[in-house]
Simulated scan of single mutants.
Amino acid sequence: MIRSMTGYGRSEGNYKGRPVAVELRSVNHRYCDVVIRLPKLLAPLEETFKKKVQARFSRGHIELSINFNGSGNAPKQFKLDLESAEAYHRILKKLKTSLHLSGEIDVALMSHFREIITTSEPEEETAPLGRFVDRMVERSMRALEKMRGEEGRALGEDLAGHLDELDRMLGLIKQQEKKAVQAYHERLQKRVSELTQGIAVDPARLAQEVAILVDRSDISEETARLKTHLEQFRKMLQKDEAVGRALEFLLQEMNREVNTIGSKANDVNISLQVVAMKSGLEKIREQVQNIE
């Protein structure tokens, strides 16, 4: 069954007492466009996660977010450089004594020197954390796949209904095509009689003119191809693979056949059905754009 490109997947876990959340959001896109948002600690694994998502999904704009503690950053670590603090303190005491300066050399003053107290990311091995997050990404992808599959089934059912309606209208066109030839023959005969004011007209000549029009307005090939395209479209909806691009191409061919029928058919009723079919194809096109 076809899959939609719209979906959402989420998984939550706990790594060494730290809550971890992984989210995947997907919307329609011509190709597989993956955007990764993750903590600095996992930055070396960005390309790995990106390839993992691209291997599972063939189309869609997919955003992968990995958060620690509900945010993108892990708790920072603070480090005191006692040697630097002692050096600053000695220099400040010497400066105070040499220049006879007033004031206390206290913690408030010493804290202004950034070299004394520094911050850094927690030292932690990336490999075990990466394996833990990798399993969470896998669960999120399964959840996203499930939702895209459910959306795809709903899309498939709706598209099947539109195809049935197109099939019905195609049948009406075929029926009307047979009536159109006879109707044209009668109109032409009446028109000739009016112009010749009752003078006898060669039946063979009249039949020849009708035959010429029938040949010009013959839409049997177009209706046959359109029928084939409709059947092929239905078969593609049942495939368990990415068929979105193939459906887009097939839809273009269906539009081409319908346009040709409209331009060749010399009948009002057929033209009305063509307009209705174009409207139906446009509805299908809007939905096909969201199929993987």
Rank of each mutant, 00 (worst) to 15 (best):
V201L: 14
T223C: 07
Q175M: 07
Q175R: 12
G161L: 08
V210C: 06
R191D: 08
E157L: 08
I199A: 15
D215N: 12
E157F: 08
V192L: 15
K174R: 15
R216A: 04
H185Q: 15
R187L: 06
E209Y: 01
D215G: 03
Q189S: 15
E221F: 03
L159D: 00
L213S: 11
R187M: 03
A183N: 15
M169L: 14
R205H: 09
A154F: 08
E177Q: 13
M169W: 03
L188K: 03
D158F: 02
G198R: 14
I212R: 04
D164F: 01
D158M: 06
V201Q: 13
T223Q: 07
G156F: 00
Q175F: 04
I212W: 03
L155V: 06
L195D: 12
K174W: 02
K190F: 05
D215E: 11
L170M: 03
Q197V: 04
I219L: 08
D202T: 08
I212C: 07
Q182W: 02
A183Q: 14
G198C: 07
G198L: 13
Q182S: 15
R153D: 12
Q197M: 10
S217T: 14
Q182M: 07
A207F: 00
R153T: 06
E177D: 12
L166F: 01
R205S: 11
D215L: 04
V181K: 14
V192P: 03
S193R: 14
A224C: 04
K174F: 06
G152S: 01
E186Y: 01
S220F: 02
T223R: 12
V210H: 03
E177M: 10
K190Q: 13
Q197P: 00
P203L: 07
K178F: 09
A160Q: 00
E221W: 06
G161Q: 03
T196A: 13
L213F: 05
Y184V: 10
G171R: 08
A207V: 00
K190V: 01
L188H: 02
Y184M: 11
A207Q: 10
L195Q: 14
P203Y: 01
E221H: 09
Q182Y: 12
L166A: 02
V181R: 15
L206P: 05
V214S: 14
E177V: 05
V214G: 09
A154R: 12
D167S: 09
A154I: 08
H185K: 15
L166V: 05
G161W: 01
R187E: 00
K174H: 03
D164Y: 02
L206G: 02
A224P: 00
A183D: 11
A224E: 13
Q208D: 13
